[in-house]
Amino acid sequence: MNADGELEKLVEWVEGVRKRVHEIAGEWQDEEGSLIMILHAIQDEIGYIPRGVANELAKATGISLARIYEVITFYTYFRLTPPGNHEIHVCMGTACYLRGAESIQAKLLQQIDLMKAAGGAKDDFQVDCVRCIGCCGLSPAVVMDGKTYGRLNPEDSPEILKQKPGV
């Protein structure tokens, strides 16, 4: 592996991100109530809000880094670390909870552990609980990488993890 090449790519990436942060801040410059929208735009692109980016954003907007951090840490939607490469959202809304969301979550975690132990999981699954995802009619429901799986029972978890489509 060519270490110099890797480094160059990294530097290029960082420079690209820096530019985007200023561009996004510029787009929102004349808009009222923009900080949270800017943070959303950044997280949409990068997946999280790295410290360096927050720093850059402070420079671009004139808002203090402390205040930016205050906001990022208050809102659970914003992430300070990169997400896993598969995001699983287990709905823990009322309807799903009543219909066994907790055991679905437990089964998913157990299954992921099993896959890891077997060395079969190259992928990194991130399991989060979310509140009602808006399809209680399909409860209990799980969203994986943007696709919703509904009317589940705990035994369905291996299927979801294999990314078999279909409800």
Partner: peptide
Amino acid sequence: AKVRFGAGAFVCGEETALIASIEGRRGS
């Protein structure tokens, strides 16, 4: 009319917290 997003805080449904959130502050 314009759109502003929430960011995963239930308390921001409360009026004064919602206002703080649009203003770019913590939703207290």
